[in-house]
Amino acid sequence: MFEVVLRRLVQAVSVVLVLSLVSFIGVYKIGDPVQLLAHEGATEQEIEDARARLGLDRPVHQQYLTFVGRMAVGDFGTSFVSSRPVVDVIVERLPATIELTLAAFLISVLMGLPLGIVAGLYPEGPLARTIMAGSILGFSLPAFWFGMMMIMFFSVDLGWLPSIGRGETTRFLGADWAVFSLDGWSHLIMPALMLSLTTVSLVIRLVASGMREAMMTDYVKFARLKGLSERRVVLLHALKNVMIPVVTVLGLEIGSLLAGSIVTETVFAYPGIGKLLIDSINRLDRPVIVTYLILIVLFFVVINLIVDLIYTALDPRVRGTLR
C-alpha cells in the first residue's frame, strides 16, 4: 500500500517534468508574449527591453532550466501579464473552481445514481424510457448553448438567478468561499448544472446498463433465492458491482469537469482557474499556463490513485495488480 503510493509519487515527478517541458515548448512555439502585449506603437527598443525584463531574450532551454530550477524550490515565478506570483494568482482562483467542480460532481452523483438505478431496474417502464431519453438529450446539447439558455430563462426572463459571476464570499481556511451564503449558491447553481450536464447523463447510462446486467447475474438471482429483500439485493449486491465502472468513469470525469469548467466559466464569467487558463492562453502567459497544467496533473495522479484504491476495495480480484 505504502509502496504503491510512493511509486506513484515518483511517477508523478517524471510526469510533471515531461508535461512542463511539453507545455513550455508548446507555449513558446505559439508566440512571443511581448509582441502580443506590447501596445501598437511600441518601438523595437521597448520590445527588446520588455523581453529582457521578462527573461525572454535568453535561449528557450535556458529559460526552461531556470523555470525547473525555481520550481524545485517551490517558486513558480511571476505572471508575464500582471507580474503577480503565479501561485497567488492560481490560489486566489482555486476555491471558485473547487466549488463549481464539486457542486457539479455532487449533482452528477445525486441525480445520476438514483435515476440510473430506476432506469436499470425497470428498463421497459415509461419512467426508464423517459430517463434514458433525457440522458441522451443531456449529452446531445452543447453545454455552452444550454448555459446560455439557462441565463435567458432564469436570469433574463424570470429574474430568479444572477446571470454571471460569483456570489458573496466568506473567509475560511485562508481562502474565500461562496458556499456559505445563499447569494453564493444562487450564483453557483446554473454553472454547476451546465457543467454536470454531460456527467449526469453518463452516470445515468452507466448505472442503468450496469444495473440491467447485474440483475441478471447469477449471484443476484442467488441472493434473491436466498430470500434477501429486494432492496438489499439491489443496493448491496447489484449496486456494488455496478459501481466498478462508475467509479472509474467518475474519477475520470472529475478531470473532464475541470476541463469543462473552462467553457462554463467563460459563459458565466465565473472567476475560476478555467477562466484563468483561457485568459492566460489568450495572453500567452506561460508561467500561469505551465503551473496550471502541473497542478492539474498532480491532481490527476491523486485522483487516479484514489480510483485505483477504491477499485481494489470494490473488486477483490484486482488486488495485488496495482502499480
Partner: peptide, 18 residues
C-alpha cells in the same frame, strides 16, 4: 466594475439588471 468577457453574457447581465 465586473469583468464579463462573453458578449451575450454581458448583454444578459444588463438585461437582468446585474
Amino acid at each position: 466594475i465586473r469583468v464579463i468577457e462573453s458578449a451575450p453574457a454581458r448583454v444578459a447581465a444588463l438585461l437582468s439588471g446585474d
